[in-house]
Write a protein that binds this DNA or RNA. Structure first.
Lengths: 303, 303
DNA sequence: AATTTGTCATACCTTAGAGGTATCACAAAA
DNA sequence: TTTTGTGATACCTCTAAGGTATGACAAATT
């Protein structure tokens, strides 16, 4: 019996192949699969290598299936269908025959903000609920992969291909400063007072749209920050601010956390710099998303 | 519709589950799957998490399926069967409707050793052949994974669960020394003359059985080497030997490669330190293995 | 009762491979 | 000629699969 490499092919590759065959265009197929074009190109090449078959002819307008490619496509259809139906059946088995709900929760706001919401979610979904805390970008990735059904994320956020529903909830950003920088209590600090001073901020890659937006706001306010890489851990960040290395900008709810040596202070431009709470999900999960919006409306303060 | 994590489960996990369910024992199941017990334990835990179902009750004599576990097992059977049959059909598609043959070739011998063998293989299998060169241990791993149908490997080698057939071909080891260490031409150097001198040698982990064996031979010969980590690249190794950092021990065929500053010399214990050529494959591939043994017999010199 | 053995679980590490960005080569369209 | 849209390539990052070492625990053995 010749194994010829084939046993190790992931069914996922075959599913990718089906989508590519349908689109006849790598870029579009990649978009539908929530990935970028190059890895998909590689996957198709590998698949051809595995199978020992040329699946496509490549030309400058896209791809077209070869005859063998068509045959392969027909051959795998039953497998893809069987997988779907079996997975559908497996979903029925979850505890108490009820469908599980996996929901993400952003760490962009102070976690205490969500205690009521969490309680409501647990009451509402009971054992079926699976709650995951992470930063908005990882949550978006997991929603795309199907690991999460929906996620509460911080807006603004660019999530192409996903449904995105806003809730009423939003918070202005607060400045977090080393206490000794603040000569007197000044509510509503103007950002321009910090011109040239270092700001702990996220890397542009993690959310280009929001990064560029804030940069514009900073510029308008006359604040040209010296960007410093933000530490992962919240307490580390506070410690470094206390040490006078730079300032931070957090959602207002974080003012609930105090630390020796740092001062939370509202900024004059706070209303421009708002984080809103949104719910993201794959198209098709609108019902769940709507449920979550309503639960959030009932369980979050109206600021 | 709720995705609930489930879409991302690899079918492989389900296949593992089926094996575990059959064996009711993680260690044995892991052995059948060519992996160690801990990852399998984790996989089963993850699977339960994904499905939201307790599949097994764990006790001190092994595992037993729960009722839900049995139901899940029944549910996935059609998928596993469909996958097998579809993959079987896919194999038919390989170029010219012929089954492909993936064969590994060890780098433990000088590659020129195999020129005739390679030629024969290509003549015999034609386009169907896929030849991979790597070290014996990676080849064994790929054979286990099904990426290779069979591989020519260096013996002795411990490959539990795999078929292992010896060919008639074997080579003694030669010493490779910095030229300036050799005062006069001495054919048949005794290892003990190098006592305490550094030896570039492989890490024990890569082949414990062979490592221990050679160590015993060294000890008997009165050679207590100072083991040094062997560089990956052959030419780097030669350069460092030329620089006088230590000696090496290679299969005799490598004497074909000369380099300024190093001398290849047979060792008196060479007949004890032999590398043989073997063919390894998964049980069930005996026919191919036998073919390869015969091709090797015809294409390799009888030393 | 104490020891040994065989079970699964846990902690930690290494590494293959999936996916990302930047960029290329090429042909069709403008 | 330039622009635009195609797939391919090179290179990087990081997740997750698999490995080793070890633990906790119960049954079997002494």
């Amino acid at each position: 019996m010749t194994n010829s490499y084939l046993d190790t092919i992931d069914v996922r590759l075959l599913r990718y192949f089906a989508v590519v065959a349908e689109e006849c265009n790598l870029r579009r197929a990649a978009q539908r699969l929530f990935m970028s074009q190059p890895p998909l190109s590689r996957h198709m090449k590998n698949l051809e290598e595995y199978l020992g078959v040329t699946l496509f002819t490549r030309h400058t307008k896209g791809l077209t299936l070869t005859n063998e490619g068509t045959k392969v496509l027909q051959t795998i259809q039953p497998l893809l269908r069987t997988q779907e139906s079996v997975y559908e059946q497996l979903r029925e088995f979850s505890t108490a025959s009820e469908k599980r709900v996996a929901v993400g929760l952003t760490t962009a706001f102070e976690q205490g903000t969500f205690t009521t919401l969490e309680k409501r979610l647990r009451e509402y979904y009971g054992e079926r609920l699976r709650l995951v805390r992470s930063d908005s970008l990882k949550l978006v990735r997991d929603v795309k992969k199907g690991k999460l059904d929906a996620a509460f994320v911080a807006l603004p956020l660019d999530a192409p291909g996903l449904e995105l529903q806003a809730t009423h909830y939003a918070e202005p950003l607060f400045a977090v400063l080393p206490s000794h920088w603040l000569e007197a209590e000044k509510p509503g600090l103007a950002l321009k007072e910090f011109n040239g001073k270092p700001l702990f901020w996220f890397h542009r890659d993690s959310n280009p749209a929001f990064f560029d937006f804030t940069k514009t706001v900073f510029a308008h306010a006359g604040y040209e920050p010296l960007f410093m890489e933000e530490p992962e851990e919240h307490d580390v960040l506070l410690a470094r601010i206390a040490a006078g290395e730079g300032i931070g900008l957090f959602a207002a709810s974080f003012a609930a956390i105090s630390r020796k040596g740092v001062t939370f202070s509202p900024v004059a431009e706070g209303e421009l710099l708002r984080l809103a709470l949104g719910i993201t999900s794959l198209p098709g999960n609108e019902f769940l998303a709507q449920e979550l919006v309503e639960l959030a409306a009932a369980a979050l303060p109206t600021p």
